[in-house]
């Protein structure tokens, strides 16, 4: 059974890759460019050189953390599609902790913690609505996305706006609040090891600890988990909080590692792509790493595609969509396949 699952994931990933490349080639033909050059640009622009690889990793870091957050939520039976809002709240709180608090050495820890806490609290609002009022979190997390978006907008026009007041952005964070580069002079910052360690941690918690088992149980069959005596309601709230904290941490790392300041539309869309990442990974935490690499490659490669081959990069977004539809289709086929092959004596 386990073997089948892994084989299937590999098949799904390969098919998804083929679809994406095929889509890019098709787009190139439609745009009147040379398909080979386009495909070459897609690859070389994302993994072809150390700079492009670095640019890809910069996209990978937030996708990985938000993707893990979404996968964690869905595995626990929490349909959190508000990673975008939780990412923004994390970025906002991180910026506040970096800019408003007087600089001190090690401030970056405060910045990251603030981001994670803010993201976690933001998701917990939706969790409380579900527990107390029975409101579906799909609705609340979407609505909270909008609120977060406008809170950031208000902040960079108001209390967090730079002292010069010329642009809607915050002042840069002091060096003590930033994540340094991983290698001297390199693009990639210390957010990468943090994201990888956190991913590993979430994977271990989910598969090797009692709370992880309780969450997986409740996510698959809440009635049975409840009769087992598990604290289903408390766990549910915890799942909201952890999932939100992961997205919030991604937002904080984006500020502390990459942009150094808050502005409108920061990291726009990571929280939504995260849902695609989680599903391509089949909600398996190790799979999220590969799915995030896939989407990060596609997204950075698409920009190169536009520069080199003149193919609009929005087509890459369409390619992502096509990939997802294919993955969803494969998932459905797998269910059918499992049905007819279900052993029974």
């Amino acid at each position: 059974m386990k073997g089948h699952r892994i084989v299937w994931s590999v098949v799904a990933a390969l098919v998804a890759l083929l679809v994406a490349v095929g889509f890019a080639a098709l787009a190139a033909v439609l745009a009147g460019s040379d398909p080979t050059a386009t495909a070459f640009a897609l690859v070389s622009g994302s993994v072809g050189s150390s700079e492009s690889l670095g640019a890809m990793v910069l996209v990978l870091i937030p996708l990985l953390l938000t993707g893990v957050g979404v996968a964690f939520a869905f595995r626990s039976g929490v349909l959190n599609i508000g990673a975008e809002g939780q990412f923004l709240m994390g970025a906002l709180a991180a910026s506040a902790a970096g800019v408003l608090v007087p600089a001190f050495s090690g401030q970056v820890v405060l910045v990251l913690v603030a981001g994670a806490v803010a993201g976690g609290l933001w998701a917990t609002i939706a969790g409380l609505y579900r527990l107390v009022r029975g409101v579906n979190e799909v609705i609340t997390t979407i609505l909270l996305n909008f609120i977060a978006l406008y809170l950031v907008s208000w902040a960079v026009h108001g209390p967090l706006q730079e002292v010069a007041r010329s642009y809607p952005q915050s002042d840069p964070l002091p060096a003590s609040a930033r994540l340094g580069p991983l290698l001297e002079g390199g693009l990639v910052h210390a957010g990468l090891p943090i994201a990888l360690v956190v991913t590993l941690g979430v994977g271990v918690v989910l598969s090797r600890t009692a709370p992880g088992l309780r969450l997986r149980a409740a996510g698959q069959n809440a009635a049975a988990a409840r009769l087992a005596g598990f604290p289903v309601r408390r766990d549910l709230l915890g799942a909201f909080a952890v999932s939100g904290a992961l997205a919030g941490l991604a937002g904080a790392i984006e500020i502390a590692g990459l942009t150094g300041r808050l502005y409108e539309r920061i990291g726009s869309g990571y929280g939504f792509t995260a849902i695609a990442v989680a599903f391509l990974a089949g909600l398996e935490i190790p799979g999220v790493v590969f799915a995030a690499i896939f989407f990060a490659t596609l997204s950075t490669g698409a920009q190169a595609m536009e520069r080199v081959a003149g193919v609009p990069s929005v087509l890459a977004v369409a390619a992502q969509g096509a990939t997802l539809i294919v993955v969803a289709l494969l998932g459905g086929l797998r269910l059918l396949w499992a049905e007819t092959e279900e052993p029974s004596a």
């Binding site: 009692a210 049975a224 087992a228």
Partner: peptide, 27 residues
């Protein structure tokens, strides 16, 4: 029962059974 989970996980689907195998939370 929880069909998609393993037999091992299903054996732990009672609070005291889970505590028996994971007294400090580690499985």
């Amino acid at each position: 029962l929880i069909g998609p989970l393993s037999l091992r996980d299903n054996m732990m689907l009672v609070t005291y059974r889970l505590a028996e195998i994971a007294p400090r939370g580690w499985i």
